[in-house]
Simulated scan of single mutants.
Amino acid sequence: MNNTGKILTAVAAGVAAGAILGILFAPDKGSETRRKINEQGKKIAHNVKDSFEKGKEKLNGLKEDIAKTVREKAEEFA
């Protein structure tokens, strides 16, 4: 895993841990706490999925740019 992937994973884990700890220390009933944890978990999962999709799109764009550059350079030498 490259550094960017490690950083994104660490940030996501930190956000998740902070959200869960904040909910656990809130003075709510157990059922309300479980509901909040469930909602936060869904939000975090959605955000992580979006982040990975954006990263995947960027990598695909980079791949296309590299392929284009390689083709152009190959044509120059042909």
Rank of each mutant, 00 (worst) to 15 (best):
E75Y: 13
E53T: 13
K36Y: 02
A12F: 04
K49A: 15
E75S: 12
E64L: 09
K73C: 00
I7R: 12
A45N: 12
K29H: 08
G18V: 00
I37R: 03
Q40L: 10
I20N: 02
I44N: 02
L8K: 07
R34S: 05
K58G: 03
E64Q: 12
K36P: 08
K29F: 07
R35A: 12
A16G: 04
L24I: 14
L8V: 03
E39Q: 15
G55L: 10
I20M: 09
V48M: 04
G18T: 00
G18N: 03
E32P: 00
N47P: 04
A67I: 08
I20E: 00
L21N: 14
E75R: 13
K56I: 08
T4R: 07
A17S: 07
V70T: 07
R34C: 03
A19I: 02
R35I: 05
T33R: 15
G14H: 01
L24A: 14
K68D: 05
A13M: 10
N38S: 14
E75P: 05
T33N: 06
L8P: 01
E64T: 12
L59R: 08
I7M: 15
A10S: 09
A17C: 04
E53M: 11
G14V: 03
A13S: 08
E53L: 11
A19L: 03
V48Y: 02
E39A: 15
M1Y: 00
G14N: 04
N47R: 11
A78Y: 15
L8M: 14
A78K: 13
G41Y: 00
A17F: 01
K56P: 05
K73H: 12
